[in-house]
Amino acid sequence: MAAPMTAHTRNAEALGERGSRSLRRRGGLGERTVEIAIQLVALVSIAAILLILVFVGKEALPLLTSAEVHKEVTPLGMLAPIQRSGESLYMWQPVSDVAKYNVIPLIVGSVKVTLVALVFAVPLSVAAALFVSEYASERVRELAKPAIELLAGVPSVVVGFFALVALASWIQAVFGTEHRLNALVAGLGLGFAICPIVFTVAEDALRAVPRSYREAALAMGSTRAQSVLRVVLPAAAPGIAAAVVLGFGRAIGETMIVVMASGNAALLDASLGRSTRTITATIAQELGEVVVGSPHYDVLFALGAMLFTATFVVNFFGERVVDGMRRRLGAGS
């Protein structure tokens, strides 16, 4: 390895002496190597994502195609209620003499917990971002921003443990919830986990609003609060929307916190004080020891594919909306 490199270097020097034209060409070659390397790395990550998609899809496919699987569960059967003694029941009981794979309670659980997380985290994070970018002195800013961003480094299992042990008891003491572990506790834990993401992106968006906007608002005689709330905040709206979309994606895909803090009972209701079961928690709890290739296994992969699609769609449309807002704002100014 060493010898060719030395020769290579000497060669380059000789070329350099000979003329700047050939040197430029050599530089171009080096550049191209780096370019190709970077492209390869990018391709590998794209390929990996595609492979994951293919893998998940492949494992879920028997649910659509296999007659063997259809004896136990059909895609439609996963949505339709189970009729029993005149009642419509939505039940998730995959390990049973008669397996019941109704995913409605799981979808509702995921959405419920994610909404709680967003309702908790978005106002808090955006307010924090507003404070740090608009009001805080440079010293406070330099302390607060990394401190909040450091929260992103707290492992979700630690957040989950905190929610399980401490938060759940406080919530029950304050609200007298029916279950100690419930959608509210899990949602707050999740909110805590997505705060740093929403904060960082929102803060960047606010800081990106040109100084001239603020100066113009103040020059027109508006107060500081008016300038912040009526000029800066709307101008940063696309970025803040992006922050919310990112937060949503993280929250609906988060697993550890909900496994630990939600109680995982597949109850179908709107109550926040009762236990709930999310899609992610179901996959995490059941995939570990499920018989590979069984209908239960296929259903779990179908849930994974569903989650993948949901985040993908939200991110995709989120991006479109954000782009649209950005263009409109750009045109307006």
Partner: peptide
């Protein structure tokens, strides 16, 4: 061998 109640919280 009957089904658990839906309200059973399943923990890891």
């Amino acid at each position: 061998n009957k089904d658990f109640a839906a309200a059973v919280q399943t923990l890891a």
